[in-house]
């Protein structure tokens, strides 16, 4: 008569144990899902704000004054922010800016607020900034056709296609307003097409086809 009672108690303990374990397993799964989902679900981030702002392509737009950018999202309020959205699926992007007295930094973000590449004006102090953003296949193609212009530029290979380039330009400094205006007016974000004159000559068979 004892035996069934013991096995019943065992069953209850077993079931409780399984329930607790299942609960813990579920908790772990939910924990992992929540942590992984937050970056994709976040709707109040600066990158989402910029992505939804329909900023013009191939141009740095002043985004420091955007409503959602004027608080914590914008970061340092002593800097002005200029963003240029890009999509490398269409073509590589060339970014340039002149030599200037103003302090600036440039960062390349993906649409999930990940700052994947950054530099400051010291790197380009003597010659101005000439940079090109490419994905892996574009880089391979440009190397294949021998675009010599790449040698003069900072080539940044990205593992994503859509994102934005962000200039942070320091506003402070006495008497720098003219320098700032001139710098801001000269920053560029254009489709990158290698100049045909700088391409390496086609190999032999191509010459035969020319008439």
């Amino acid at each position: 008569m004892e035996r069934p009672r013991t096995s019943m108690a065992g069953q209850i303990v077993g079931r409780t144990l399984i329930t607790v374990l299942a609960g813990m397993l579920l908790a772990c799964l939910v924990h992992i899902t929540v942590v992984l989902a937050i970056p994709k679900m976040a709707t109040t981030t600066a990158s989402v704000t910029l992505a939804n702002a329909n900023l013009p392509k191939f141009k740095f737009s002043d985004v420091s004054g955007m409503a959602a950018m004027s608080d914590a999202l914008a970061g340092d309020r002593q800097f002005r922010l200029f963003a240029c959205p890009f999509d490398l699926a269409a073509q590589p992007i060339a970014i340039s800016s002149p030599v200037s007295d103003v302090f600036w930094t440039l960062a390349i973000f993906d649409n999930g607020s990940r700052n994947t590449y950054s530099l400051n004006d010291r790197l380009t102090a003597s010659a101005g900034l000439e940079l090109v953003l490419v994905n892996a296949s574009q880089l391979a193609r440009l190397r294949e056709i021998g675009a010599q212009e790449l040698e003069k530029r900072i080539v940044v290979e990205l593992d994503f296609d859509q994102g934005f380039a962000l200039f942070r330009v320091f506003e402070g400094g006495v008497g720098k307003e003219d320098a700032l205006q001139s710098f801001v007016g000269s920053m560029q974000c254009n489709p990158f097409e290698p100049d045909p004159d700088t391409l390496a000559p086609e190999p032999g068979p191509a010459d035969d086809n020319r008439v």
Partner: peptide, 29 residues
Amino acid sequence: LAAPQGNPYASAKAAQIGGLPMGLAEGFE
């Protein structure tokens, strides 16, 4: 936070803060 590099907690925190984190070549906050 700027480049979470495979740390999902840092990615989630960066999204939660929602800003435009500075890269190391830019500065430090």
